[in-house]
């Protein structure tokens, strides 16, 4: 089993963190993983995307051309990555910020009001965690508990309150569908 994932949005949406949490989670579940970030020219406000590969075997290419799973957080990313998804793959997108409709019929499409849910939980910037929760539920790629462990490895300096909030967002996403 090899799953190639792309997460894309704008800088500040926690794109890189989401990718690293997935990679950590894969590692915790003793899978082979790679994570590769790709930034726009600007560190903040520009587009950001990353590729994550989670596999039962050593990962050949960390470069993902045709992902199995794509998590899209903003409009430009939808335009860019929708066409690249493997037939039969899955597109998860943040409906709060994306007004256009995905066109592909040969993939599974999941829409989530990620920002709305995140703000209800108390913090817009945990929209990425909501998306991760949904994603692992829909793909059965990794376990929820593993992701909770993994986010603690990513946010080493975060306080307990923030970590608990992240957990809540993961759970919320996981329980959505």
């Amino acid at each position: 089993m090899t799953k190639e994932i792309i997460i894309s949005g704008f800088g500040g949406q926690g794109i890189v963190s989401s990718g690293i949490i997935l990679a950590y989670a894969g590692l915790i579940e003793d899978k082979h993983v790679t994570f590769f970030p790709s930034y726009g020219a600007e560190m903040r406000g520009g587009t950001a995307n990353c590729s994550v590969v989670v596999s039962g075997e050593p990962v050949a290419s960390p470069i993902v051309a045709n992902p199995d799973i794509v998590v899209i957080m903003n409009e430009p990313s939808l335009t860019r990555f929708e066409p690249t998804i493997k037939p039969g793959g899955m597109l998860l997108y943040n409906k709060t910020l994306i007004k256009s409709q995905p066109q592909r019929k040969d993939i599974a499409v999941v829409s989530i009001e990620a920002n709305v849910i995140a703000e209800e939980l108390g913090q817009a910037r945990i929209a990425n965690m909501v998306m991760l929760g949904v994603m692992i539920k829909k793909t059965k790629l990794l376990n929820l508990e593993t992701l909770k462990k993994a986010q603690r490895k990513r946010f080493v300096k975060a306080n307990d309150e923030q970590l608990a909030l992240n957990d809540k967002a993961l759970e919320k996403g996981y329980g959505l569908l």
């Binding site: 690293i20 082979h32 993983v33 790679t34 994570f35 590769f36 970030p37 990962v59 960390p62």
Partner: peptide
């Protein structure tokens, strides 16, 4: 740059 920026176990 890719090898340097990539994360792996």
């Amino acid at each position: 740059g890719l090898l340097g920026q990539m994360m792996e176990p």
